[in-house]
Design a protein around this nucleic acid. Structure first.
Length: 325
RNA sequence: ACGGGUGUAGCUCAAUUGGCAGAGCACCGGAUUCCAAAUCCGGCGGUUGGGGGUUCAAGUCCCUCCGCCCGUGCCA
């Protein structure tokens, strides 16, 4: 059973990324054959600064490894290190109906906002389909908002197979990761880069503390009884604390006499402790950056091996010569 | 494709007959606050869409290319 997941390096990872997605994806590496890639080709539609894209891609690899991705179990690679992706994208594009892409929400959203959409954004679901199909992926863990794109991949694969009367492409299934964790940002809205309310995972301790202190609260006085359920600080604390610790803090909220400043300090300490091992691993990785590059190269080699196999099947099906021979 | 409009800081927009590129918001730092918010103080931020020309001097005038918006046409 092969699972596949990609993440766009469009910025530094934050708590929302981790608790909403990364954590669940990494957990799957133990039971499945996992392919994880850094979707730099996708990021290209957003990040227009070459130096920045390179930095984000490298940081993404470091972060994922620091957060527990085991390269000896899972295959980690950079999307752009697998050129077979681009070739498969073209082949798929020739069987993709315009109407299918016009329905996709990333494109529709941008149109609705009156923003300029380029062909990259429009055809992005085809690239995503290629990402998935190139490795005969069985399951693709995604959030609910991405299920549509998996359906697109299935549609394209099915259409290709039917058109050429071949079993060249393996139909993947969406594996919906129910993100049980609520991760509010510093303004109380859902944590998201586009809201500018994120708390970055690996920022320096001092910055992190400052960021946590800036979380929006109500103006209840120090001695007032407070409601933990509606407080972002408490909601975030739940991500790091066990049930007993959560109950203890909730009791202090309700009792009154504890201010939000103290709650934030508690949250800060809990977060620092929670991510301490990852921070330590990260420091080691940064000190051995060559090792990270080696891991990515080894991952790319493995990914290309599988990709070549599938691509040859696809090429043969539509009448192109097989390259691998 | 033609016509009109438009392009200035991350965002919304100023800038007199051609005369030192600015403000508000956002962001960062400080004061204040249990923390945050509000308020006050300070700071960062620019190839004025690109290129060429006129001029002592161009955001401003001329040429050219590009992006975006509106209208019309062409093609099915």
């Amino acid at each position: 059973m092969r699972i596949l997941s990609g993440i766009q390096p469009t910025g530094r990872f934050h708590w929302g990324n981790y608790f909403g997605a990364i954590r669940q994806y990494i957990a799957l590496q133990d039971n499945e054959q996992a392919f994880y890639f850094i979707a730099d080709l996708h990021a290209l539609t957003t990040v227009r600064d070459p130096a920045l894209l390179q930095e984000y891609s490298r940081e993404a690899a470091i972060d994922l490894l620091a957060l527990g991705l085991k390269p000896e179990q899972a295959t980690l690679f950079r999307q752009s290190d697998v050129p077979e992706i681009s070739e498969l994208t073209w082949l798929l594009m020739t069987v993709t109906q315009m109407s299918l892409l016009e329905k996709c929400h990333a494109y529709k959203d941008k149109q609705a906002k009156g923003l300029a959409a380029d062909a990259g954004l429009f055809t992005y679901p085809v690239l995503m389909a290629a990402d998935i199909l190139l490795y005969d992926s069985d399951k693709v863990p995604v959030g609910v908002d991405q299920v549509q794109h998996i359906e697109v991949a299935r549609d394209i694969a099915g259409r290709f197979n039917a058109m050429y009367n071949a079993e060249a492409l393996h139909l993947p299934e969406a594996y919906v990761v129910e993100s049980t964790a609520k991760v509010p940002g510093t303004d109380g809205e859902k944590m998201s880069k586009s809201y500018g309310n994120t708390i970055e995972l690996f920022q320096p301790a001092k910055k992190l503390r400052k960021r946590i202190m800036s979380i929006k609260t109500d103006s209840a006085a120090l001695e007032d009884s407070k409601v933990p359920e509606t407080c972002s600080v408490f909601t975030l604390y739940q991500l790091f604390a066990d049930e007993q610790q959560q109950n203890a803090l909730a009791d202090r909220y309700r009792a009154g006499g504890m201010g939000y400043g103290e709650a934030k300090q508690t949250l800060y300490e809990a977060a620092m402790e929670y991510f301490a091992p990852a921070r330590e691993r990260r420091e080691q990785l940064v000190a051995n950056i060559d090792q990270v590059e080696d891991i990515l190269q080894a991952g790319a080699t493995r990914a290309r091996e599988k990709g070549r196999e599938v691509l040859d099947r696809v090429r043969a099906a539509c009448g192109l010569s097989a390259q691998g021979q």
